[in-house]
Structures are given as structure tokens and as C-alpha cells.
Design a binder for these strands. Sequence first.
DNA 1: ACTGCGTGTGGGAGCGCTCCCACAGGGATT
DNA 2: AATCCCTGTGGGAGCGCTCCCACACGCAGT
Lengths: 374, 374
Amino acid sequence: MNLEDVARLAGVSRSTVSRVVNGDRRVSDAARARVQLVIKEHAYHPNASARGLASRRTRIVGLVIPQVVIESFDDPWFPVVIKGALGACDDADLSMMLLMDRSLDDANATGLFGRVIHGRHLDGVVLASSTFDNPLAERLHAERFPFVLIGRSDRENWSFVDIDNRRAAAEAVSHLLGHGYRRPAMLAGPEVVIGAEDRLDGFRDAVAAAGLDGAHIPVRHLPFSQRSAYVAALDLFRASPRPDAFFAASDAMAIGVLQAARALDLRVPDDVAVMGFDDIEEGRAAQLDLSTVRQPASDLGSRAVAILASMIADPARPPVHEWLPTRLVLRGSCGCGFVNARMVESTTEGKRGEALVTQSSRVAELVAYSSPGG
Amino acid sequence: MNLEDVARLAGVSRSTVSRVVNGDRRVSDAARARVQLVIKEHAYHPNASARGLASRRTRIVGLVIPQVVIESFDDPWFPVVIKGALGACDDADLSMMLLMDRSLDDANATGLFGRVIHGRHLDGVVLASSTFDNPLAERLHAERFPFVLIGRSDRENWSFVDIDNRRAAAEAVSHLLGHGYRRPAMLAGPEVVIGAEDRLDGFRDAVAAAGLDGAHIPVRHLPFSQRSAYVAALDLFRASPRPDAFFAASDAMAIGVLQAARALDLRVPDDVAVMGFDDIEEGRAAQLDLSTVRQPASDLGSRAVAILASMIADPARPPVHEWLPTRLVLRGSCGCGFVNARMVESTTEGKRGEALVTQSSRVAELVAYSSPGG
DNA sequence: ACTGCGTGTGGGAGCGCTCCCACAGGGATT
DNA sequence: AATCCCTGTGGGAGCGCTCCCACACGCAGT
């Protein structure tokens, strides 16, 4: 069953069928009705390859998974991004191809870069790897291949979606320090990841704003995993002076800190307070009572795809920089529970008013707080 | 840059270039060398759409994510399957498209089934949804579209890869009951999932083998999530008689049981023993000390793709039923820790000697065990 | 009547491959 | 010397679409 067959059965030309299939309005109602009937009765579906060949559009977009994520797939952040991206693809009538970073690194012809990008398998890609050094994006840009980053970039003409990591982190840490803790420590992510460094900068902003001397504050750069954080926290807990508040760059890491605290019989938040980042499902378990920063991982994926779709539709489109809102979620581990404060939530809007989701900000109503540490 | 251009530059015909590109051996060394040089110098890559149109092969396979998984993406099992599948695609020079189950359910022409399957976007699909009722597989089979299931099926002519859930579960529960617990309970998965029911059957096998009366043993059908298990376990702990051993159909559920035990100040494994299934990364954290059944999730994904690739290459190929090995991983929560037994591991080979991975079986050396429950 | 324009329709020429068939030339077989 | 096969090569005919151009037709403006 192909276009020609449908045309014959409907008593029209190939062109007319093509117009009906592609939603061209310049078709008479009578012809359209006949064609649609034939299409439905014979379950006709246009051949993707033929379409791709003729139109130079495959309607497939790629989602590139960074090597870091593939290695430790226990980070629940990425699956949620995938889910969001997949939903947006569905809405835009696109298909989504999953690609591994390393396949694209390959400078040779044999790698996926050649086969997939040069072979015009895809119309564009979403890159979830927002590292400072990004040779893949560099190359895509050089070849004028449409792409969107998840995670900001300094390059003005690259499109991205991101959250304001620095501001969100600063806000969270300011809240943490507001409970009176004086010896904060940070478990930061890998140094090459922009978002991780932004969270560290936000941490430093808050530390400075609290009037603490940043010079002696411990900061550890680690993979985004529970295990690495567990080990690092154990180590820091044995140091002197012992930290009384931890800011972790991800919830998985924060859970590692909680485990380390439990292993050493330290009470949370009495002996040590913990603030995470992400608001993953596991962290929401009642017993952990983990305070954290909620980020819209699913929206990050879906907005990236939506922007990519618009770039593909209009290559002349100027680059888009979209900031999504985060939200401080206060449970007990930051000290709110300890001081018997009322559970509060406050909100960080997306930067520069570009936020798509707007949420009303509830003012914190802390009943009282005291300094547990020193 | 296309085939024709390469041919002209190399001084050969289009056909010869095509042969070189596709690894046809019937080309002289001289001609091959010249063509390869031109290809390399001009970074030529065959156009995927044109190839697909002419050869009726896209070299893209789909991985269908079940609706259940997409909804609760906190189950770390599936990302690992994806990772394995992606690796196998890379090896076989295939691309992988991610699809949602619901898109395919759509009986209408507009759904992905029409666009992707009928539109010949794909050469085949891997279905990770191994439910008893599987209309999607039914339809694919009816249309002679290549597919492989992850999870067994009763249909003889459908290919699948799976683990022997029943035997692995029976072995795990037998071990658990071997420590002397007399009031086991099971937190089973959703009733529609074949693998979940197999684990339940294995549980019942072990219960019967231990001479216990299965009639009064609590079994709860739940989603594969930590939270649902937490709630169910709390409930069961309040019943009388209180269970003294839990078998959970997944590690996430087992962790929910551990949390419930902690919430009620029950000691593990003194007051209650717990056995999980999956051996996910989180479950390996030292403090949880969770005994479980390790399953090769990554291999499940990669083998499914490999089998699919062979089916695509040879459509006449008889269906493949492949069983991968599991392994009982004994930590403390099953009672081994409690009774001060030596840490042991034993192995379940894949059924019928079809196992790809063979591991030597270490004989359990339990020093002693006693019945904590009564 | 001639021109102009907007709408609906048809047909040709690709898009860049693969696959089949034809055929040249050299060596082995009759 | 004629025949056969085997290897290496070239060219034609698609694959099933999209896109462009041509053109018929009706209706207003001159």
C-alpha cells in the first residue's frame, strides 16, 4: 500500500493524496473525504524512509545520554528527564532515539556521529551533558546541526533549558544556615559538570552572606552517587571540627550523608542538618524527612524537545535560553523538624521572568529556631 | 556528498562504491582502496533514509517501555535494561528508539503503531512488558513484525529472554525458611505481570516444601514500589500472628519492608527476616544488609537486542527462548547475619543448560542457625 | 473579448540508495 | 579452440515519497 495505490482507489492523483496526508488545505472537501476514507479502510501509513528521503526530514530526534549517567544509572534524575522528553516527542509527533555519548565522541567515520548525524538519521538532538568542555556541542554547532542543551552554556548562540542552580542552592543553604548551623560542608558533584559547579557557587554565596569565613569550609568533589557521599561524609564526620550541616549536590548524595550520620549515631537534624537537591522519589520517604530543592526534571526534558522541534521547523530561529523554576521543599532534615518549626515551602521563580510554571510563594513561618551546634 | 560523487572521484561506478560501503568482498583491492580513501577524505556517510527506502531496512530497533514503568520511574531495574540494550545496539550497528506502550495501544492510524510500525520506521522491537495479556505482542505477531519479549510467554512461537523467576524465588525462600522462620509473608507484584506471578509461585513452592500450610500465609499484590510495600508491611506487622519473614518481589519493596520494620522498632533479622529480589544498587548499601536474588538486568536488555538482530537478519529463524542465570546473594537480612553464619553465596544456573553465563556454585556453609520466631 | 488572479488538481523530476542483470576478461575444464 | 565458471565491474530500474511547475477552471476587473 503506497501513495499511488491510495490515489488510484480514491480516483485522485498522488499529489492530492500527499496533500491530504500532510494537512495541506488546498484540497476540496470532496477529494479529501474520499482520500481519507481510503486511507482509513486500508490502514495506509506513509513510509518513513521515503518521506525522509524526499523531504530531508526524518521526524526523529536524539537524546544523548552522557557517559557519566550511563555508568551509574542509579541516579533517578535521568529517567525522569527521558520520560518528559518522550512525552513531548509524542505530542510533537516525533520519535526519540537514545544515544550514548561515547558513540558520538568517536572522531572516525565509523562512530555514531557519522552514521547518525551525517547520515541524516536525525533532525536534531538534545544533549543532557552540560559540561564546561563540550566538544560534541561544539561540533554540532560547527555543522549547523540543530541541538538543545539540558543545562546552561556560556555560548550565547547555543540553546538550552536549565534551572537557576546557583540561586536555588544559595536559597537552600541560606535557609539551612538560618537555623543557626555554623560549620557547613558541601558535597559537590563532578567539577566538569556546570550545574554542579553552579550549586557550589550558590553554596559559597550563602556562606558569605551568613558572614562565615569560606576559607576553612570543607568542599568535596564527588560523583553524584549515594555511595561516594557516604564515604566522604564518614570521613568529614571524623574531622575536627565536625561539620554540623551538609549541603549535598543531589538527593542521592544527601541520602548517603544520612546513612553516614546513622552509622555514627549522629542525630538529624540535632547533631547534623542535611539539605539535598533534586527531590527524588526515594528522598520523599517519610523516615528520611529530607529537605531539598525540587527541580522539574520532567519539564527539563519536555521543554528541551519542544525547543528543538521549533528549531527544526525554523532553522533561522534565534537561540532560546529557558529557565525553569525550582522550589525549596522543607522537611525535617534541615533543622525545621528539630526546632519544632511549622513545615513551610517557598518558591524560586525561574530567572528573568521566563518561567513557564509559576507558583505562588508561601512565606516561611518559622515558629522558632535555635543553634544546635555551637 | 553522495554515492555518485564518491564514485566519480574514485573513478569507479556507483555499484562498486556501494559494495565497498556494505562490505561486499567482490571488489578488487585496488578499487576498494581508492574508494575508501575518497570516503575518508570527504567524510562520506550513506544517507539513512535512502538506504532504508531501497533496502527496506532502517537499522533501527524499538524498545517499548511499559506504561507501568513510565509511571513510577523510580524502579532502577528498567534503566539498567536500557543500558544493556543500548550497548548491544552499538555492537550490532543499530540505533535504538524509545517508545511508550500507550502510544502503541492506539488502535487508530494516528498512533505510533501506525506511524512507527506500519510506516516501517523500525526493523523490530523489544517489548519489556511481559504481562499475561499482551495485545501489542499479539498484533505484532499477526503482522509478522519481528519482536522479542523481556519476560517469558506461553506462546511457543514468540521469542523471549527471561530468568527463571519461579526457581530463583523458591530457592531464596527455601533459604529464608531454612533459618527457621515459620510465619512467612509475601509482597507480590502486580497480578498481570508474569514474572511477578512466577515469583509468587516460587514462594508457594518453597512454603509447601517446608511443610507449612499455605492457606493462612499472607500474600499482597502491590505495585513494585517502595512506598506501597512500606504501607502493606506496616499493616501486616500489626496483624496477629505477626509475620517473621518477608519475601518481597523486588528490592524496592524489600526496602519498604525494612523501613516499616524500623518504624515499628522491629529488629532485622532478629524479629523479622527480609529477602528481596533484583539486587539493585541501593540495596547493596552496607547498612541495609539486604539478602536478595541478583538478576542480570543489563544482560536481559542486551540479549533481547541480539536475538532481535538475528531475527531481523533471518526472518525464518525459529523462535528463541533464552534463560539467563540468577544468583542468590546472602547478606544479613535473611537471617544469616542474625545467626552469625558465614556469608555465603550460591548460584542458580539458567534452566535447561541454556545459560550464557556460568558461575561456579559455592556450597552454603552455615555454621548454625536457630529459630528466632517460635 | 482580453487579462488577471485564486483555487484545486495532475504529472514529472528528483531524493540517494540497493538490487538485479549484463558483461568483460582470465583461468580451468572439456 | 570452444566452453564453462568465477571474479570484478557497470548501469538500469526501482523504492515511495515531496516539491515544483503546469494547467484547467471560475470569477472579477478593464
